[in-house]
């Protein structure tokens, strides 16, 4: 072999090995996905009834093997991942590894006052996630909406992860004590709202971020048409833009405050005072 081929061979050997070693998960990541018994025996689906116990048993064995490899590999995978990240190849191929099982919604509530008064005169609430209506087929524009959704989704995921890692948030906490991962989302929409909706003598006093979730029905559970229609009716109000409340604006909510709309449970996660 020529000298060039020897050099390329060394790179190939190194790179393929590093990729393989780098895929060995850390103990922390494995712990997050620990498969614990007992082995399940679902009876809601004939195929699942056959497959689930076998796959549960296989996954328990596989988890122990992976755990053993992770322990034996020590800090090698971390060094391999460092090399891969330095090339921009930091790889986390876990797409839909643990898919969400709930519908998610996110909304912002703006409080507006006059230029000279810091008491809110009116409020408006805007649904920002998902961007596309969910009562219509999503084509064309939905592709662009998906990128906006992804940005909001990722910001929310980062916000929650950092929040969990921190000490428990007290309900009277100031916004500066919260992780700032959601700040760019809040500020982006707040700027748009200010530009499109506020008069010259008005100013934005506060923006609140509310997260809403609804657990999806397990397989085989019949859909309750009444509940579904009530949720669509609630969402319908948001589809024409921010819902203004000029007569009786809601008060500032404490963190973790809860509101309900149809079967959506909203919870206040973050706020910014202007």
């Amino acid at each position: 072999m020529s000298a060039t081929r020897w050099a390329v061979s060394l790179f190939l050997l190194w790179h393929v090995t590093a990729t393989a070693v780098g895929s060995i998960p850390s103990a922390d990541r494995l712990e997050e996905r620990k498969v614990v018994g007992p082995i399940r025996h679902p009876n809601d689906d004939p195929i699942a009834a056959v497959m689930t116990p076998r796959l549960d048993a296989l996954a328990i064995d596989f988890w122990h093997v992976a755990s053993g490899i992770s322990d034996a590999a020590g800090s090698l995978p971390a060094y391999a991942r460092l090399y891969l990240r330095s090339l921009g190849l930091g790889q986390q191929w876990t797409m839909f590894g643990s898919p969400p099982t709930r519908d998610e919604y996110m909304r912002l509530r703006y409080f507006i006052g006059s230029a000279s008064d810091h008491r809110p005169a009116w409020a408006a609430t805007e649904l920002i996630y998902p961007a596309s209506r969910e009562d219509q087929i999503r084509l064309g524009k939905a592709y662009w909406d998906k990128h906006r959704d992804k940005a909001i989704y990722n910001a929310n995921t980062a916000f929650r992860q950092r929040l969990q890692a921190r000490m428990k948030v007290e309900s009277q906490a100031e916004s500066t004590e919260l992780p700032d991962d959601f700040a760019p989302i809040v500020r982006y929409f707040a700027r748009q709202f200010q530009r499109d909706r506020l008069g010259v003598d008005e100013r934005l006093l506060r923006t609140e971020f509310w997260y809403g979730g609804v657990p999806n029905l397990p397989r085989g559970t019949p859909v309750n048409i009444g509940v579904r229609d009530a949720r669509l009716a609630a969402l319908q109000k948001y589809y024409d833009g921010p819902i203004e409340d000029r007569l009786d604006p809601p008060p500032y909510g404490p963190l973790q405050a809860v509101e309900r709309e149809a079967d959506i449970t909203w919870s206040l996660q973050y706020f910014e005072d202007n």
């Binding site: 895929s23 596989f62 397990p218």
Partner: peptide, 17 residues
């Protein structure tokens, strides 16, 4: 890689994903 991570997901093993 993604397949093996999926094996550790409850919903993949019970077929409901």
């Amino acid at each position: 890689n993604t397949g093996l991570w999926k094996l550790l997901g409850d919903a993949w093993r019970d077929g409901s994903t």
